[in-house]
Simulated scan of single mutants.
Amino acid sequence: MAQVAVKVVEKQNNDENIMGVDLGLKVPVVAVTSNSKTRFFGNGRQNKYIRRKYKVLRQQLGKAKQLKKIKQIGNKEQRWMKDQDHKISRQIVNFAKENHVSVIRLEKLTNIRNTARTSRKNEKNLHTWSFYRLSKYIEYKANLEGIKVEYVNPKYTSQKCPKCQTLNKANDRKYVCKCCGYRTHRDRVGALNIMKAPMADGVA
């Protein structure tokens, strides 16, 4: 076994655009840039299928008292999830580079399991998916490209109208403002508001 230390020089980034990133379950990631570009990343249905598949396997092995195999498939599931997070975080950073983004803004994840928008049937999936890990993958890949990552206060990011600031509740995946009529995908609203939200430490 050998350990090799490599010093990586971070790039300088003089671009001016900002990008808001919203993390979720049905739509894993939505990114919106200040130059009006939007992209959806990941496959929420595929993620849910894989988690359900491994859950059934664990139940079957548990009944058969095959504890060693339960541990093995648990490790396999975690490797798959980490691989997905690596791929998605790379796609997000590449999208930021394509759109000359200097700052990526994410929700501060301290209480995401209490505040995330999810139904009761998705609650277990929320607890098995690592939003924190994905955000950290985005952060270190972004920093290598000279892109700064900031964490913002997530309060009302899913409800506030990006146009008139009125609070509304989305109907499934559709967001329609009852005041000004603004409409778009619900998770896109989250990304837009994250892009404009105050930083989590109170600094604008």
Score class of each variant (00 low, 15 high):
A200I: 13
I18T: 13
A204Q: 01
V30C: 14
K178V: 03
D201V: 15
K108F: 03
Q60I: 14
T157S: 08
C179I: 05
D201R: 09
K69N: 01
P28I: 08
G202K: 11
C179S: 11
L25N: 05
A31P: 01
F131S: 09
T33V: 14
G24V: 02
S130N: 12
I73P: 00
K124N: 15
Y151W: 07
R120N: 09
K160A: 04
N94G: 09
V149M: 15
Q66P: 00
Y132I: 05
Q66A: 00
A142I: 13
P28L: 02
F41D: 00
R120L: 08
L126D: 04
E98I: 02
G44A: 01
A5L: 11
P162A: 03
M81P: 03
A5W: 08
S135T: 12
K148P: 06
D187H: 10
D201E: 15
I112Y: 09
R186M: 11
E139Q: 15
A64D: 09
V149P: 12
K160W: 02
A31K: 06
N193Q: 10
A142E: 11
T166K: 07
M195I: 05
Q72D: 10
D187M: 05
Q84A: 03
K87T: 08
R120S: 06
K26A: 10
H100R: 07
L67R: 04
H127I: 06
V203E: 05
L144W: 11
G44N: 05
M195L: 10
G74C: 06
E10L: 13
G24D: 12
K68F: 05
V30M: 09
S89V: 10
V27L: 12
N114Q: 11
A142D: 08
P154G: 11
T184V: 07
N14M: 14
R79Q: 01
S130P: 06
R90V: 04
I50E: 07
V93L: 13
Y140S: 11
Y132Q: 09
K121H: 14
P198E: 12
I73W: 00
A96V: 15
E107H: 04
